[in-house]
Amino acid sequence: MKAFTYERAATPAGATAAFAKAPGARFIAGGTNLLDLMKLQIETPAHLIDVSRLALDTIEPTKEGGLRIGAMVRNTDLAADARVRRDYGLLTRALVAGASGQLRNKATTAGNLLQRTRCPYFYDTNQPCNKRQPGSGCAAIGGVSRTLAVLGASEACIATHPSDMAVAMRALDASVETVDAAGKARAIPIADFYRAPGTTPHLETMLEPGELITAVTLPKPMGGTHIYHKVRDRASYAFALISVAAVVQKDGSGRVALGGVAHKPWRVEAAEADMPRGAKAVASGLLAGATPSHDNAYKLPLVERTLAGVLAEAKG
């Protein structure tokens, strides 16, 4: 860990102003990911701005009939919220499928969105990694890639995004609210929030430097049966090999997003038109353009089979 300075922000404006004075600083909330990365020298910020005590820890109804989830709402609290459990069961199920109880007690809504990949090569500073050290290359390509991306990857990076929550948020059409150093607020649909790795896999989201997530909003409830199936070798406390987040309506229509297959939650709205026709049809649209490796080609049939199981479960 590189020595760093630390300050605690009292307000969102204070946090972004602090960043303006210390470019290259990192916001820290629960620290469940960033601290590990700092200990391993994968992230080496010179300055930390603690945003964990900002008054962004409430869940409020929106006038559109949805929910506005403060950026600092802990994963445990979000999963347990009665309104979330009633109207957005997908989100609760995704949250409790992730990490452990202790980690969920610390982890925040915004921090969860900004988790960094669990690609093993990203975690080993002896290895080239374009995400960790732009331009150094990608050791994962041609290496051990069983857990890595089959969709949306580039020749520079085949990392996946590790979040379960974000997959549910993607299926639910959440929107990420932010404020920048100038005090300007904006809302970024989650569909546009994550970048493709392209040639710049170190740039993971559309956030500008110093831009702070203040909330995530959910549109009004969409009903339907909510299922999150996270597939993993170990029964708990493991990242997804793949996951399927689905909302299925009585008429068989619905929506589906995938985790564990790409650098972001993967959703292809056009493929959802095939939901009533079953998993095979949907999967062929969802997985179009896949570029699997020998090690992770299993993810393609796994997605289809898992989706079939989910659709069968939704039918009851």
Binding site: R118, P120, Y123, G143, V144, R146, D233, R234, S236, Y237
Partner: peptide
């Protein structure tokens, strides 16, 4: 039986999954 494997990078000669997130051992739920 079900999860433990030190994954070898056969190009560079090391065990890639060198932490307890990558080298999975059973948890209570298993």
């Amino acid at each position: 039986a079900l999860m433990e494997e030190l994954a070898v990078d056969k190009r560079f000669g090391f065990f890639v999954n060198h932490d307890l997130a990558g080298y999975e051992v059973p948890v209570h739920a298993d």
